[in-house]
């Protein structure tokens, strides 16, 4: 996993509440057995005017000009500004894979669905919760200002706007540590092999039916 420390990225607004993971990456693309290559199909049904299927040449498909990601001023965006309950629905990790593959490293919203939120951290994406009022302000500013970049700093847990306003955000200490260092959870957990084995042995003795 790529570490996340600091990002000075162009922001793009996605002004809808309850964006679900079916919308982020529709089901037909879940048939892939790989982790990479989902970016061109992120938000497929909103982004293109035709119906997408795996294997299509996406560069030849008609784009929906009204969709923010297609607008010239938002090309190269790496910060996604979203509304409440972002990433609800299916647990598909293909959703953060698609966002990462597209180029997003940070997502700012008033709230996220639990599983999606968790999946982001496993993939080097920083999901940031700000108050609905602050997210509103960011929406207004990003829409009013072309080339609006946000400086996201994980170490100091702050977002700085082009006007110099600073927003602090919370992040779980363990997740922050993993993200700052690009650490793989499995390696960390396997440092505790003996504890897991001891726990398992106990469990097997007290509830043997779990091991039938």
């Amino acid at each position: 996993m790529e570490a996340f420390t600091q990002l000075n990225g162009l922001a793009v607004p996605l002004d809808r509440a309850n964006v679900d993971t079916d919308a982020i990456i529709p089901k037909q693309f879940l048939k892939s057995i790989k982790r990479a290559g989902f970016g061109p199909n992120a938000f497929d049904e909103w982004r293109y005017l035709d119906h997408g299927e795996p294997g299509m040449d996406n560069s030849q498909r008609p784009l929906n000009p009204d969709f923010p990601l297609n607008q010239p001023r938002y090309q190269g965006a790496s910060v996604l500004l979203a509304r409440e309950n972002f990433g609800c629905g299916s647990s598909r990790e293909h959703a953060p894979w698609a966002l990462l593959d597209y180029g997003f490293r940070a997502i700012i919203a008033p709230s996220f669905a639990d599983i999606f939120f968790n999946n982001c951290f496993k993939n080097g994406i920083l999901p940031i919760i700000l108050s609905a009022e602050n997210v509103d302000t960011l929406f207004r500013e990003v829409e009013a200002t072309e080339g609006y970049k946000l400086l996201v700093d994980l170490t100091s847990q702050t977002i700085t706007t082009p006007q110099g306003a600073v927003y602090a955000f919370e992040v779980d200490a363990f997740r922050k540590h993993c993200l700052l260092n690009g650490l793989d959870d499995i390696g960390l957990t396997l440092q505790h092999v003996n504890e897991i084995k001891a726990f398992e042995a106990n469990r097997k003795a007290s509830q043997p039916w779990l091991f039938n």
Binding site: S91, D114, D185, I186, L190, I196
Partner: peptide, 22 residues
């Protein structure tokens, strides 16, 4: 509960999941 694919791999390899209590 549901988990993402990174966690699927984590459970396969360690029989455990990193969790915060809800």
């Amino acid at each position: 509960h549901g988990i993402g694919t990174s966690e699927v791999e984590h459970v396969m390899a360690t029989q455990c999941l990193v969790q915060k209590k809800s």
